[in-house]
Design a binder for these strands. Structure first.
Lengths: 340, 340
DNA sequence: TTGATTTAGTAAATCGATTTATTTTGTAGG
DNA sequence: CCTACAAAATAAATCGATTTACTAAATCAA
């Protein structure tokens, strides 16, 4: 177990001071007028023995950790997993590592996790915020931490966020259903006060009302246990035999919804047309592929990391927070008009 | 922007030495014979002002970071995302944070990432290792780092690992197909020398040979771009019209395979029976649900974290590395016998 | 009373870097 | 020859904890 080399070891081996080594390694040789020969000698040696500065010590001194904290709702959800994947790639390419965690939309858990991240001195935060976390995020921002929110935002917190045009997305998709001749369209979603969920619901309602139809809404209480999501959906569908279409508000609800539909032997779209928010292999490969609203995942990730990196690089300049809203794509998969 | 309190601030406020504060905060008060009154006073004050030790400084001194490095193949793959989720939960509960990354099965990238983790002084490693990474992992172990491998292992590296009984899983599932009357069964998988892939392939071959049938194997070169996976599968299926069943070696191949099957208008299972490794919503919700081999995800995660934590807690004792092999479950979904 | 031991606590070294302040050396100008 | 100034490098302070080694006061035994 060879022990790690420190900057002192390097300095001693070369008979120079560690200050000099440090300056050279940090590219401040010119500025500090260190002779090119010495620079060369040090760099060559460092390369040779494979010395790498201890980043903990570095962080302690500089106050920068080169770590970004990423808080998603649930890393096992394909939407968040994909985003995380893309963010991870771009972060690593820019010399940042990611510490991530799943909030489960649980305020207390999220508070704890913010505490942990803070404690670890992460340089910046990427958060899909749960409800009730306003104060904690505000306090982060007050302390000068860059925070970028995505998927949703906190109206009371003035910071960058990247999200999609939820209201238009569901409005447009609902209109599509109506134009196909569907009239009894239900919206099944998670009970939530989060901005993206409120907008999705609103878009659906707006479309129905604009066309003089009556909204039918079912809100499911989120639960880790999938059975407890499936159960109420089943009850709802059994109770509303008159529906001719159903709109699922998230990929998770959508997947559970399809399971219910299968178990009840409902035929899609002849018995019941289906649209889901989020596109996802399950929807593409379903017996009759399901129309879905696809989020521009790559763009979301790109924007998130770009905004955050720019904050990290000029932490001095106080630019106004950016609100980035991206478009979605309605992927129409079973466009057969409703049989009259 | 209030600045953080340090242990010195605490010590000064209370008129005691920082040594004393440190001892008390680390539960060494008794051992160090510090009077109960003083202990009480310090604890109360610390609580009051909400002081938290700077974990970077702590790590620098103690050499422990309380961070676990998790390297999966691809965090956006549902198998790895679920495992990561479970590991994350259990790690946090035990006071550890996770830094994760996706290796893409790329040796060079993985080497870089190990370097980064090492640099960050992570306390332990959980790795789904790509090929060719033996030396790097061995060197980690030599340096006394706990390393647990999962999903696959490196035969030349003697360390803990958790995986499933791949050979039996595919053997058993293939036998199931044969018993159903299928005779021309192909195995489509990623080209790979990884232990789990070799075993899966072997299990398939063993079963066919045992029954006097001829193996038909198609190995796909992995690629980030899904089109480049779909393409060769399509070519293969078009070329082998005589097949009556196909076995997909991973969830990813399976999903792509179903897309091909859909695009070719092949009916499952009447034209072609399908089995896939890994169970997954896509397979449950496919037009005719697909028989799949379900991995015990919770058990895998539990075992991984348990083994790692025990190594972390008694790093002194040199227990023999454990090889944990778990059972899978064959979920039979369209068990209709082949029509003769 | 004296020396040993225990009790309760602290000063200083340490982890491995960065950064500020300072010293040494060389050279040009008067 | 002496001063001034730049060039080249370094000593020492710092980040915020832990840990080793030490001290002062109190207790105890002989």
């Amino acid at each position: 177990m060879k022990k790690k080399l420190s900057i002192v070891d390097i300095a001693q081996s070369l008979n120079v001071s560690k200050t000099t080594v440090s300056f050279i390694l940090n590219g401040r040789a010119q500025e500090k007028r260190i002779s090119p020969e010495l620079v060369e000698r040090v760099q060559k040696f460092v390369e040779e023995v494979g010395y790498k500065p201890n980043s903990l010590a570095k962080s302690l001194r500089t106050g920068k950790s080169n770590i970004i904290g990423l808080m998603v709702e649930d890393i096992s959800n394909p939407f968040f997993a994909s985003i995380a994947r893309l963010i991870e790639d771009r972060a690593y390419k820019n010399g940042y590592k990611i510490i991530y965690c799943s909030t489960d939309n649980d305020t207390r858990k999220t508070q704890d996790l913010i505490g942990m991240f803070r404690d670890r001195h992460v340089d910046g935060y990427i958060i899909a915020p749960p409800e009730g976390i306003e104060d904690d995020v505000t306090s982060l921002i007050k302390d000068g931490m860059p925070v970028v929110m995505f998927d949703r935002h906190l109206p009371k917190v003035d910071t960058d966020f990247v999200e999609i045009d939820n209201l238009f997305s569901t409005y447009n998709a609902t209109l599509h259903l109506i134009e196909q001749g569907y009239k009894n369209i239900a919206f099944i979603t998670f009970a939530s006060k989060q901005t993206q969920m409120l907008s999705r619901l609103q878009g659906y309602k707006d479309a129905l009302i604009a066309k003089g139809l009556k909204p039918v809404i079912k809100e499911i209480v989120f639960n880790q246990d999938e059975e407890l999501i499936i159960e109420p959906i089943k009850a709802f569908l059994e109770e509303h035999k008159d529906l001719d279409a159903v709109f699922f508000g998230t990929n998770h609800v959508g997947t559970c919804g399809l399971k219910v539909i299968n178990s009840l032997g409902i035929k899609v779209p002849s018995d019941l047309a289906v649209i889901s928010f989020d596109d996802y292999d399950v929807f593409k490969l379903y017996a009759t592929p399901v129309t879905a609203i696809a989020q521009p995942i790559v763009e979301i990730a790109d924007n998130v990391i770009t905004v955050l990196l720019s904050r990290l690089n000029n932490s001095s300049t106080h630019q106004k927070p950016q609100a980035i809203v991206l478009k979605t794509e309605l992927r129409i998969r079973n466009s057969s008009k409703k049989a009259e």
